Amino acid sequence: KRRTSFTPQALEILNAHFEKNTHPSGQEMTEIAEKLNYDREVVRVWFCNKRQALK
């Protein structure tokens, strides 16, 4: 499976959402994914990886 390359704009939006809520609901992740035109699973993994990076 290929790595997803996030655009700077997408990272800005993802980081803004992460600052508000580090554990978004499934519905929220779906909405973010649709807004950014990414697969929901990609957004889920991004949040998971971001949380791990802060440990």
Rank of each mutant, 00 (worst) to 15 (best):
P8D: 14
K50H: 03
P8T: 15
T7V: 03
H23I: 07
N21M: 03
T30F: 06
N15C: 10
K35Y: 10
G26L: 11
K1S: 05
A16G: 11
R44M: 10
L14I: 01
R2W: 04
T7Q: 08
E19T: 10
K55Y: 04
R44C: 10
D39F: 02
L14K: 01
Q27Y: 04
H23L: 08
P8I: 07
L54A: 12
S25I: 04
K1N: 14
K1I: 15
S25L: 06
S25W: 00
F6N: 05
Q52H: 13
T30I: 10
A16C: 07
Y38P: 00
A16P: 01
E19P: 00
W46K: 00
E28Q: 07
N49W: 04
L36A: 09
N15V: 04
P8M: 14
R40H: 10
L36C: 10
F18S: 02
V43R: 00
L14T: 00
F6D: 05
N49Y: 06
C48G: 12
A53M: 14
I32W: 01
K20F: 03
Q9P: 12
T7R: 04
L54S: 10
I13C: 09
P24G: 00
H23K: 11
F6A: 04
F47T: 01
S5F: 11
N37G: 15
T7F: 01
V42C: 07
W46Q: 01
F47E: 01
T22W: 07
T4S: 13
E28W: 02
E19L: 11
F47C: 01
H23M: 05
K35H: 06
G26T: 14
E12M: 06
E19K: 08
K50R: 13
K1Y: 03
E19M: 12
E34Y: 06
S25G: 11
Q9N: 08
R51Y: 09
Q9C: 04
E31R: 12
W46I: 01
A16R: 10
Y38C: 13
E12C: 05
E28L: 12
E28P: 00
H17G: 04
G26A: 14
C48D: 08
K35I: 07
F47W: 07
R2K: 06
A16F: 09
I32Y: 14
R51K: 12
A33R: 01
R3T: 08
F18G: 01
H17N: 09
R3Q: 10
P24A: 03
Q27V: 10
Y38I: 13
W46S: 00
E34Q: 07
K1G: 15
E31V: 07
D39V: 03
I32A: 02
R40A: 13
P24C: 03
A16D: 15
N15I: 01
F47P: 01
Q27C: 10
G26F: 07
Q52N: 13
R2D: 15
G26E: 15
K35N: 05
V45R: 13
E12Q: 04
H23Y: 05
I32L: 08
I13N: 09
I32V: 05
R44Y: 14
N21H: 07
L14F: 01
R3G: 11
L54C: 05
L11P: 00
G26R: 11
R3D: 14
C48S: 14
K50I: 00
H23A: 11
Y38W: 10
F47Y: 07
N15A: 05
A16W: 07
Q9F: 07
K1T: 10
E19Y: 06
Y38H: 07
E31N: 05
R44P: 03
S5K: 14
V45K: 08
E28C: 04
T22V: 15
F18Q: 00
N21S: 07
V42M: 14
W46M: 01
K20T: 11
N15W: 04
K20M: 12
D39I: 02
I32R: 00
F18W: 10
F47G: 01
T30W: 03
L54Q: 07
Q9S: 06
R51F: 04
A53H: 13
N15L: 08
G26W: 15
L36I: 13
L54H: 08
E28R: 07
K20A: 10
P24D: 01
S25N: 10
K1C: 15
H17T: 13
D39Q: 08
K50Y: 00
R3H: 05
V45T: 14
R3P: 13
Q52A: 12
K35F: 07
A10Y: 01
K20L: 08
R40E: 13
E31H: 14
K50V: 02
A33K: 03
E41V: 03
H17E: 14
Q9V: 10
E19V: 09
R44K: 06
E34S: 11
R2V: 14
E31C: 03
L14E: 00
S5Y: 08
R44S: 09
P8R: 08
D39Y: 03
V43P: 00
I13E: 05
N49F: 05
R3S: 13
Y38K: 08
D39N: 08
P24V: 04
E41S: 08
I13V: 11
N37Y: 15
K50A: 09
A16V: 10
N49E: 15
D39K: 05
V43Y: 00
A33Y: 01
A10K: 02
N37C: 05
E12V: 04
E31A: 09
K50C: 02
C48M: 15
I13D: 03
R44A: 12
R51I: 06
P8G: 08
A10R: 01
T22G: 13
L36R: 00
L14W: 00
W46L: 00
N15M: 08
I32F: 02
V42L: 14
P24M: 04
N37W: 03
R51G: 05
F18A: 03
